[in-house]
Design a binder for these strands. Structure first.
Lengths: 248, 248
DNA sequence: TACAATATTATTGTCAACAATTTTTAGGGT
DNA sequence: ACCCTAAAAATTGTTGACAATAATATTGTA
């Protein structure tokens, strides 16, 4: 068991090499991107320490821009910094995931309602096309659940962008979605009930096509609430096993 | 007229002296706080450039920690950074303010509903006491609208904290509320309809006391929506004057 | 005067070294 | 063996200097 714990909480380092530093972008920006994907994809284990000398050597940069990148990660809530101690990759337990889903439910409900008010006919066509495309993908290569995960996010991505609220877009797509990805990786959770989800997606597009903002918001909130319910059930199940957080 | 413009957009510097660097906190943290309040209170004019040598001299620190503070400000959406060019204080036009209010409506609605589900009886008493206290303050020193502004935020602050969702609390209190303050300073907007607002506040507390989550959410959303409506009316009014953004 | 190209200045990005703090290790006492 | 204390190592916080880029001023020309 301690093997697993060590694996999860160890001081894992990302396998990435240094990037060629794309023009128009500073080193701090590139290393921020690299670190973010490293964290979100689980290469930097949750709870593990961010070692500045080690990472600066790995990426071939000095600690100055690295620290700026870390400060940006802090802004995205992907690491937590304690003064004079350093940064650690965030750990998402079920409790925190539920908090995120509560927020997501409210914000994506808003986005979906706005999308229904503002989406053009062409937008609706695009939205429906995206759904059918993903559906076909799933049916053909049934084994690879991977696409379904990303496909699901594509759908939500598009709707949020149709809301026309750029701040909302940034909030969801630049912050919350990364946290969701991280949680999925940490718990290696499969997307449950794909068939049901697709049905719900189509109902949501129906509502948007009909410019029914209230219904669109309601359906999206319900759609996300059902995912949240799965988490809640898991939380209740776990707390039944360990009544007051008693470890082994 | 150019006088006003210069005053608003000039490279104003905050009048703050360097802080004694509270223990347990790094210099980057203190200067982050200083800069944030300087921006929110309008001492650093919206749109003005963040000059690193100038600010580092003013605060008596080097550019390293200053840049980390700036990166944190970027995370709070208080400044915008362009690579190789630098950071500028954000400018909030009505359009952006409306986006914020849309988000705030959804999130505070959520917070209020959760508060209704989770608040203890003592919490409700505290909430009501806060209201009556502010009411008395307003009636006594009617002239000072200042208290009403902050008092209004106090009320919302408390409700958000009662939601029990810490991420929601951080999102609203550490990010959105600062932006609201900034917008109020930028437009020197007075809180409209204080009497009506107090009535709505009491109805909201009523709903929370009765553990009526749906009603509490509805009332809070409506409460914020009416503030948003004022902005929208202003936007329509302005666009009537300058049909397609024609300056003087 | 107006305009374009160039030179100058200022500012940002980056680095390597030093200071301050924390963590780890070693040692001694009970 | 345990725990407390002190030295050593490692890591974070900070600084000043240098390189790269952008903004500004200057000059030349039509």
């Amino acid at each position: 068991m301690s093997l697993i714990v060590d694996n999860i909480r160890g001081e894992a380092a990302p396998t990435e090499a240094l990037l060629p530093a794309a023009t128009g972008s500073t080193r701090a920006d590139s290393v921020f991107d690299s670190l973010r994907t490293a964290i979100v994809q689980g290469e930097l284990a949750p709870g593990s320490k961010i070692n500045e000398p080690q990472l600066s050597k790995l990426y071939g940069i000095s600690r100055g821009p690295l620290r700026e990148a870390i400060r940006r990660l802090e802004g995205c809530k992907l690491v937590e910094i304690k003064a004079n101690v350093g940064a650690r990759v965030i750990e998402l337990d079920i409790q925190k995931a539920i908090e995120i889903y509560e927020i997501r439910e409210a914000l994506e409900g808003l986005a979906c309602g706005l999308a229904a008010e503002r989406a053009s006919t062409a937008d609706c066509v695009q939205l429906r096309a995206l759904l059918t495309r993903h559906e076909a993908q799933i049916e053909s290569e049934d084994g690879k659940r991977y696409y379904q995960k990303e496909g699901d996010l594509d759908f939500h991505y598009l709707i949020v962008s149709l809301s026309g609220n750029t701040r909302l877009f940034n909030l969801l797509c630049d912050e919350l979605y990364h946290l969701l990805r991280l949680y999925r990786v940490q718990t290696s959770s499969q997307p449950s009930r794909p068939a049901q989800a697709f049905k719900e997606h189509h109902r949501i597009v129906d509502a948007i096509e009909e410019r029914d903002a209230m219904l669109a918001e309601l359906l999206m909130r319900r759609h996300i609430a059902s995912a949240k319910a799965t988490l809640l059930a898991q939380l209740d199940h776990d707390s039944e096993l360990n009544p007051i957080g008693v470890g082994s």
